[in-house]
Amino acid sequence: MSIIKADTHPLDRYLRTERLPHVWCPGCGIGTVLGAYLRAMEKIGMDPEKSIMVSGIGCTGRAAGYVRMDSFHTTHGRAIPFAVGLKAARPDLNVTVFSGDGDLFAIGGNHIIHAARRNANITVVAINNFTYGMTGGQLAPTTPETGITTTSPYGNVESPFNLAGLIAVAGASYVARWTSLHVRRLEKSLEKALKKRGFSFVEVLSQCPTAYGRRNRMRDPVDTLKYFQKYAVVKNHVNPLEGVIEPNKPFVVGEFLDAPEEPTFEDKLWELTKAEFLHTSQAERSEWIIEHRRHLEVLSRIISGKGGEE
């Protein structure tokens, strides 16, 4: 028996297939993680019409361009503020931030810890490839000690961030870490994270054969995955502060934190504003929206020089 040629993939209904093949290098793990995310979405029956993917800049930031749902490709490091704003304005939508370690923890480091502190009801998928892949493999705050990058040719001397620990301490509701090899567990974890009310964070360690692996004796993507296979220790509910990643030493992957439900940022906002909002009826609200839409149309006609008269 030989392989059967096909034209469509089971996940095609979630993908903008006209844009495939994607820009990621051969063997890059981002596609794997995106696949796991889409499968988790399919499994829990999340409606793509009611879901939004927000991403920042970087290799992982390109993911928002490949999913067949509303997506934002935002400015560098600011994916979280966009997402928190979106969720605050439209609590009925499922908002996911899908971005890389550099975007979320270096350029946007402050935003993510504050979003976790506020317990904003969003899901964050952070793909950690230990480096700034898109710009050519510079030292990132997640590069393990002694890791060689273009800006640390003699090895990194800084301690990296423990992303899971940082976010758990900041006040998130759900924190997990997996690698791009643990695809099934990752899928299960993403299902949980998507269902969870509150700030849920899933870190996924991924291979970057082009920028990081090549300089650290893992030229082949399979080598990095074999490394994960060898050193990843699956343990659930470990103290997140013990989740430090050191080179050539075992590291913990698993679910670190699944906290009981607490009021989210949107809940608290709603508590504050509902008195004002509830005295208007549904009909009044729709009227208000229609009226505003008409004003906007008139305004746009004036701006485009087509006259404001109806």
Binding site: I4, K5, A6, G27, L225
Partner: peptide
């Protein structure tokens, strides 16, 4: 199982083969 492949999407990374 039966294996299906969309040939022109493949980038030959070898992950399916190795694992």
């Amino acid at each position: 199982g039966e294996v299906y492949l969309i040939e022109d999407r493949c980038k030959g990374c070898g992950l399916c083969i190795a694992f």
